[in-house]
């Protein structure tokens, strides 16, 4: 359905998933996908410096919708984000339209998002950690629109530890 992982590659974090996964993706279900940090970004028509962002890699990204950007939305995307440079080489391909459930690790607040863009630039912030509840999430592996981010946290906080399921 979506581009699949290369043979022999497995997520470094998160339980292993059954090999026939991905055939029927139920919106926002609870199979663990990945864990890490999320930041936020703006897209679509917007005010201020956000106005230059456009509709994102998928063309339909909007700040006011519960959307997100995934670092392996496509090969071209991967070449820009390069999570493998931070030891996150196993992040699976999830293209435009993929649906994920994002849970704030500290508060448990959750939001259901659709992938509509490529991001964040994982490679620029290798090793960055956010910790709470006795466990730490490493590396920026998700970007949320203001609508999605503010549903689980405060926009002025900038970065959150999250658990992602699908």
């Amino acid at each position: 359905m979506y581009g699949s992982m290369a043979k022999g590659e497995r997520p470094r974090r998160g339980p292993q998933r059954p090999s026939n996964e991905g055939k029927f993706i139920v919106a926002c279900s609870s199979t663990s996908l990945w864990a890490g940090e999320t930041t936020w970004f703006c897209c679509g028509a917007a005010w201020g410096p956000c106005g230059s962002a456009g509709g994102g890699a998928c063309g339909n990204c909007r700040s006011a919708a519960n959307h997100g950007a995934w670092p392996n939305a496509s090969q071209a995307c991967w070449d820009i984000t390069r999570p493998d440079q931070c030891g996150e080489g196993g992040i699976p391909r999830r293209g435009c339209g993929s649906v994920m459930n994002v849970r704030h690790q500290c508060s448990g607040a959750t939001v259901c998002i659709t992938i509509t863009d490529c991001g964040p630039r994982t490679r620029s912030f290798c090793g960055e950690q956010s910790c709470c509840g006795g466990s730490c999430r490493v590396n920026r592996i998700l970007d949320l629109t203001p609508a999605a981010y503010s549903a689980i946290g405060s926009l002025d906080s900038g970065v959150l530890p999250v658990l992602i399921t699908e």
Binding site: S107, G108, C131, C132, D156, S157
Partner: peptide, 16 residues
């Protein structure tokens, strides 16, 4: 301080 708070057990307890 806000960052420290938001990663704390105190925040986890009352965030809801």
């Amino acid at each position: 301080s806000v960052e420290l708070l938001e990663r704390s057990l105190a925040w986890e307890t009352v965030a809801p």
